[in-house]
Design a protein around this nucleic acid. Sequence first.
DNA 1: CACATATTCAACCGTATGGTTGACAATCAT
DNA 2: ATGATTGTCAACCATACGGTTGAATATGTG
Lengths: 139, 139
Amino acid sequence: MVDKLAARRSTSRSPNDRLDRVFHALADPTRRQMLHALSSGERTVSELAAPFRMSLAGAAKHVKALERSGLIRRTVQGRTHICHLEPAPLASANAWFHHYARFWEQSLDALEAVLREEDAMRGRARKSKSPASTKPSAR
Amino acid sequence: MVDKLAARRSTSRSPNDRLDRVFHALADPTRRQMLHALSSGERTVSELAAPFRMSLAGAAKHVKALERSGLIRRTVQGRTHICHLEPAPLASANAWFHHYARFWEQSLDALEAVLREEDAMRGRARKSKSPASTKPSAR
DNA sequence: CACATATTCAACCGTATGGTTGACAATCAT
DNA sequence: ATGATTGTCAACCATACGGTTGAATATGTG
């Protein structure tokens, strides 16, 4: 269904596509956890993959999805690929919310509880093998 | 791949699942446009479907996806289903951003341009049959 | 009643997605 | 040179996704 649009999409890259990719990247808990890890500093691909039960190749696909969305970037250094956040596209998604906040202004800070809960759940399920320098457990 | 998790999901509904569904709902331009329409007031299913070239059943699926995500709710009234925004889950997604904004605080307002561009693009491609009251094109 | 309207449902189709495995490539260490 | 490490790539698989069509279900209306 993206058939003939795919051609145009690969060349044009409208802001819709960017939002598509950013939100799609965020729609997966694995990728959100990776972003979470990156929020406390750079990580290599295998460091990002470590917390998950899936294969390296599988996790690497998630990394690539994040990269396609523009949310992260990588710098190859020797044989290791170091990933870091790229805040701009995240900001564009945030802008989307700000745009609609005007209409939907309502309960907002109260829902931060959801985040705390997600964090707690994550902490419970994690083994955290090689967490690099800055331990992301501080919050 | 969500196979056996589906059972648990229907019963437990962790906040992860909620974020999954919300972000997934937002990852589609059709659904974002529907939300946009709803931001200026209630709409029936066929009103929501009208701007799109796809079949009613197709559009109704998008509506259902939005409903599953919790972003909208419907109240059946006779034979028509009236949809309206449910701001809470949107707020939870927004909270997610706020959470990470602490780490990524950076260019943010500048990226609102993306939104304007998306609006412009939408306006260009729309016929706008039932345009409702508050046109959000000001800014 | 007969008919049009509003909407869902089920079956189907093609493609995308998330995951696996098994090479391959490049880099570092010995 | 050998070998371990880091990561990609390609093929494959099962399921989810976005869309279609055709029929079914309600609800209004003449």
